Structure formats: C-alpha cells, structure tokens
Computed example of a mutant assay.
Amino acid sequence: MLHIELFYHLLSDTLPGLDVQLGETDLVGLVPHLLKAPYMVNELLAFSALHLSTRHPERCKYYRTLATQLQTHAIANFQEGGLVIDQETCVPAVMFSSIVGLHALCDSLVHREKDFAHFVDKFVHCFRLHLGVRTVFTEAWAMIRQSVLKPLLADVERQHHFDGRLGLGCAKLLRLVQAANLGDHLTRIYKQAIEQLQVSANVFIPSAIAGSQFFGAGWPLLVCSEYNDLLLQRRPEALVILAHYAIMLQCCRGSWIVGDGGHYIIQSTRDWLGSEWAEWLEWAVTDVEDPVKLLLQVYG
C-alpha cells in the first residue's frame, strides 16, 4: 500500500509540479518509458517520498528516511553489473541521473545543515552529482536524438551557449575577479563560472517572467569541477559567485525543491565573509520584494 501511495502522489502531484514539457508530452507521459528500469522505479518513489517530506512537516523524518532507503536501493540497482547505455536504456539513464541531481538539490537546500560550512560541503556533493548527469548526457547524446527526449536535447543545444554578453551584475563580478590579481588559473575558473551563470540565467529568465517555479538543473550542470574544489576550500570569490546563483534560487522560492534556500545562501555568505566583501555582494544582497526584478537587473 505504501508504494501505491507514493506512486499516486508521484503522478498526481510531484511530477506535474515540476512543470516540465518535452515537446507534446510532460514528465507524467514519460513515466511508461522509465518503469522498464528497476533503478528508475525506486528513484521515482524516493523522489515522491522526498516531496511528501516537505509537505508534511510532522512526518518529515519518516518520509526522508523512506526517501533515503529507496534511493539507496535505486543506486545499488543502477550500479549492478555496470550499466551499458544503448537506445533502450538511454532515456531512463538520463532521467535517473537528472532526478538524483534534483533530489540532492532539495536535500541540500530544504533539509539543509544549520552550519554554513557543512551546508557548503553538502552542496558541493550536489554539484558533483550534477557533473555525473552531464557525463551520462554526453555519453547518451547521439541516442537521445532518436528518443522521446529529443525535444529536451534540442532546447539544450539551442539555449546553453555563452553569447559573449554579461548582465550588469555578472559584468561587475568579472571585473572584480580580474582586478583581484588571483593569477591566470583561478581567474579562468571564476570567469567560466560567471559566464555559465549568465547562460543559466538567459535560459531561466523567460520562465521566471512567466511565473514558473522550476529552473531545471541549470548552472550546477555547467560549472567545472575545479570550481567545486574552490567552494570546498571556502574561497571567498567562489562563495560570492554561489551567492549570485542564489538569486535564481530566490525566484523559485515557491518550489518545494528550493524553498527559502536562495535567501539562506545569500544571507549566510554575507555573514560568513563579513563587511570587507560588501562590494562583491552588492547585487546579491539587494533587498527587493520581487526577486524576478533583481534577476533582470543582475542578468538582463
């Protein structure tokens, strides 16, 4: 009965709430393609349980434990014998990686650690899972072109490239990085992270203006692994860039995956770094009632 409850909630609430369209179908319409893989069944049920943990605070611990158990089974299934990605397995493999990434994002942002340093560690783990998503995507790229995910791939190819233009906030951030004389290596990593922030924002802005609460994986999928290492070191510049990403998260505060995570990142970064980094955080800490307005000011 429990699995029936979770599956019903998945189809009626969890997946429709993500507001994702794949051409003429949506995520619910994709489910029959996913149920062929045992690991995908367990992860979908885990994702549903995670959603319920945010809906029912009085049973949060129960549903989170259930979500963890189901995901553990899912990952074990996924790893058994080594997965060979082919035309039949590419869709569940890509969707499994994507949902595991969203699962980790929610766990980091909503069920977060109280200590900011521990939060950063957990968030870097989330970023690394998203790098795994990118790896699976890359391996399955040609096969996805011939699958039900083809519309998604078309959107990715069309939208996710840097056109050379930076919004006011990103342009200022890059100027500060370049003026700090950090050396070519660090400057290159930060420059890439800032440019990919802009790319993610360019994709997200139309949805944000339309009132969508779902931003997709976005930036964590695009940023390089070296940036994650700098976050683990608590490099101030890396934390500042993370705070600018949180502006996008603030626009999704109505989403169960994000909650008030964006606000938490911005305020915690400000408190962690102190007043000497105020100029770097000027845009991120701007107090506005409408976060979409701030998004447009920083990235538009």
Rank of each mutant, 00 (worst) to 15 (best):
I205T: 13
R234S: 06
L222N: 13
V258Y: 15
W280H: 02
V203A: 15
L239R: 01
C224I: 06
D260H: 11
Q192A: 07
S275P: 02
A193R: 00
V199M: 13
I247Y: 06
S255G: 10
S212A: 08
N202Q: 11
Q213P: 01
R253Y: 10
N228C: 15
D184N: 11
D287L: 05
C224F: 02
L273D: 04
I205F: 08
V288E: 14
R253T: 12
K191H: 11
Q192H: 09
S255H: 10
P220I: 07
G218T: 11
T269Y: 01
L249Y: 05
I265V: 15
A284G: 03
K191T: 15
V203E: 15
R270Y: 02
V285K: 01
Q233P: 05
G183R: 06
L186G: 01
W280F: 03
P220D: 08
A246M: 01
Q250G: 08
T269R: 06
R235Q: 07
G261I: 04
A208D: 10
L242G: 10
A217L: 10
A278E: 12
Q250P: 02
L249K: 03
G262T: 13
W280P: 00
Q192K: 08
G254I: 08
D271I: 02
E276A: 04
A238K: 04
C224K: 03
E282L: 04
L242M: 10
L249E: 10
V240S: 00
I241M: 03
W272A: 10
Q213M: 02
S225W: 03
P236Q: 09
G261F: 02
K191G: 10
F215D: 06
P220R: 04
P236I: 04
R270T: 06
A284I: 02
